[in-house]
Design a protein around this nucleic acid. Structure first.
Lengths: 180, 180
DNA sequence: TTGGATTTATCGTATATACAACACATTTGA
DNA sequence: TCAAATGTGTTGTATATACGATAAATCCAA
């Protein structure tokens, strides 16, 4: 809505780089991936990478948050408030995400990925809380967002261990507690 | 071999435009395709099109010759002389080409396509003849190239009408006559 | 026919990308 | 251990692309 028409070259190049990174992540461990690997696959100049991203970790962060946002249909995020439906869809998005991208990445980097995902969740929750209660203290809202992000992410990790029920069912009993 | 490393941006953009054109050719008649259609599909600016191509016809010409060259393995063309093997592979390339791209294009433009293909063949034959007999008169070589291009293309058209034997077989009896 | 709408083709200018060179850090292997 | 090789992050400059404006050409309905 409020984006000022970003240059199509930027969108194109970012996509080339991100897609290449995802592609390579399926074959190599994160720590063994070089900037050159990424830019060669993407067919862009190495210097162009640094025009868009600080470094490899910045790229990882942006790829993860983008994949997460796509998974939970970014329109909803901006507009929706914090209600039952939203929480279910976020939880489903997390589990979907774990089933897709995190599987592609090699062992040894789950911690970093988990941290980034939680940070993104935190941002999303904070925005929603702010929309719901604009007058409350910021500090309190932030703490709530932190707790929710850890809680929901942890629940998704736990769900993954047995997967006896679909994620929608798994999260339902917890919702009244969250909404409180 | 002698190419001076063309800018990767040029290769990328040309490919985007050409691929888009081939894609659209499958859905629309050539005469109904606008430059805007092509550049929109390719996600490049309309002005950029004119940086690479004179107009729609220039694009068609370059796409056709490129597809033809790919079909007959461009390395061979530059290096090979005019011998039995080369002629067979060119003939096969023409028939392959007719089975692929010309089928995608709509009726009513076969004549133009045929003309462009013949012109490309003419160029290829002329180069090969020049390599074989560098001392002969240019005019005579050109005339020979014209005759060969029409002859081989026409033979391919004729072959298409019944297709009782594979193209390799079909062309064989004619080779001694061509080589003469 | 006329007049509005679309398409073509070109221009100047702003911006993104390519490229080569650089200093510095990290890895490798002899 | 040292030296060579590889990788990182930055800079200056050249070039390709984006974009908006423009005039002319073509199309099409009233």
């Amino acid at each position: 809505m409020e984006q000022e028409k970003t240059d199509p070259r930027i969108l194109r190049t970012r996509k080339l780089i991100m897609d290449s990174f995802i592609e390579i992540s399926g074959k190599k461990e994160f720590k063994d991936i070089t900037i050159k690997d990424i830019t060669t696959e993407a067919m862009v100049n190495r210097a162009t990478f640094y025009y868009h991203f600080e470094d490899k970790y910045d790229l990882l962060e942006k790829v993860l948050s983008e994949v997460l946002l796509i998974n939970l249909n970014s329109d909803q995020v901006d507009q929706n408030e914090l209600n039952e439906e939203t929480i279910v869809s976020i939880f489903v998005a997390i589990t979907n995400f774990q089933n897709s991208l995190s599987k592609r990445c090699h062992r040894g980097y789950e911690d970093t990925i988990a941290r980034i995902i939680r940070e993104q969740l935190e941002i999303i929750f904070y925005k929603m809380l702010l929309k719901r209660q604009p007058n409350d203290e910021n500090q309190a809202l932030k703490q709530t967002a932190v707790m929710l992000s850890w809680g929901l992410y942890g629940t998704a990790v736990e769900w993954r261990r047995n997967r006896e029920v679909p994620p929608e069912e798994y999260i339902k009993p917890l919702i009244p507690f969250i909404i409180k």
